[in-house]
């Protein structure tokens, strides 16, 4: 069983309890305007270029079968011509060009995870993230089941935009679901993410009904999800269907912006990060809706 990933992060400390190892799976059914992992959105290889590391040796241009690279002021990759074959990354001596996205077998991924075993102990474990792991459901299932067999705590970070039977099939292999509720208005949801929220909410309710351990995350994005109406609606919804479940707020950060340029992808969102005072206001507003808001390390108010 093979799948496609674009990174394995060791010492992952924001993806569930304890010290974890997280694999990022390629591909996502959503296209959120604030996505900070744009290299995870689509299947296949994405080519990253870091001009600061580039030594202008021209090896990439010589290796490109599509002649998509020219040496003008560093190098220019003509992204429309680029076939995303990754040969440039292979020949670059300075690792100024790198390729995100590669195939890996489920067993091999488990072997990579096992390198971190000594750090997991009782609290830690492995997490599948992305992209969205449900975009490659059979691979995700294989990895999660093998991890469970090996005695690992398993977590999955997903948008839950998947058929119910897919979600159902994973329930036995997942110890912790980490899922977003982004917007409660179906039209706004479509505008912001490219899809409607109906299947997401059904998936969410299914997990609650099955008694799954579920951490709900609410991305707080300036001008997108942060209107008091939407936040209040989300709070009321969670309070109604999953009152005791833990909820974390995920405040917008601008770390993703530079990635869009590096991958030659358009559409980077440029937002203002929140002040501590504004964060506090939003925390108070959400806490007022009666949900079980937790202060995880993702929403530390510094």
């Amino acid at each position: 069983m093979k799948g496609e990933i674009f990174d394995i992060k060791r010492f992952a400390v924001h993806d569930g309890p304890g010290i974890r190892a997280t694999a990022f799976l390629k591909g996502c059914p959503l296209d959120c305007i604030w996505c900070h992992n744009p290299e995870g959105k689509r299947a296949g290889v994405d080519i990253r270029y870091n001009p600061r590391a580039c030594i202008r040796c021209g090896a990439c241009a010589a290796a490109c079968p599509e002649s998509a690279i020219c040496l003008e002021g560093g190098i220019q990759i003509e992204r429309t011509k680029c076939a995303r074959c990754g040969r440039c990354a292979l020949v670059c001596p300075a690792s100024a060009i790198s390729a995100a996205g590669y195939e890996i077998g489920a067993d091999e991924l488990i072997r990579e995870f096992k390198k971190e075993e000594i750090f997991f102990r009782e609290t830690g474990g492995i997490t599948l993230s992305g992209g969205d792991p449900l975009f490659q459901p059979r691979f995700a299932k294989a990895v999660l089941e093998k991890a469970k067999e090996a005695g690992c705590h398993t977590a999955i970070e997903t948008c839950l935009y998947a058929p119910e039977d897919v979600i159902e099939s994973l329930i036995g292999a997942v110890d912790l679901w980490i899922a977003d509720i982004k917007h409660l208005d179906a039209h706004e949801h479509r505008r912001l993410t490219g899809v409607e929220n109906g299947p997401i909410l059904s998936g969410y309710e299914l997990l609650v009904k099955r008694g799954c351990k579920l951490l709900t995350r609410v991305p707080v994005i300036p001008g997108a999800t942060d209107s008091p109406e939407n936040l209040r609606a989300i709070g009321r919804y969670i309070a109604a269907v999953n009152q005791k479940g833990e909820v974390e707020l995920m405040f917008y950060n601008s770390l993703g912006e530079s990635k869009y340029a590096a991958y030659g992808l358009g559409g980077a969102m440029k937002g203002e990060t929140y002040s501590a005072a504004r964060k506090k206001e939003i925390v108070n507003l959400m806490a007022g809706t009666g949900i079980n808001l937790v202060r995880g390390d993702n929403n530390a108010i510094l």
Binding site: F11, V13, G18, I19, F119, T123, D297, A300
Partner: peptide, 14 residues
């Protein structure tokens, strides 16, 4: 990393 109790616990685990 040390701003929350969760972070402290993870560091202690390390």
């Amino acid at each position: 990393f040390f701003a929350t109790q969760e972070g402290i616990e993870k560091f202690a685990a390390l």
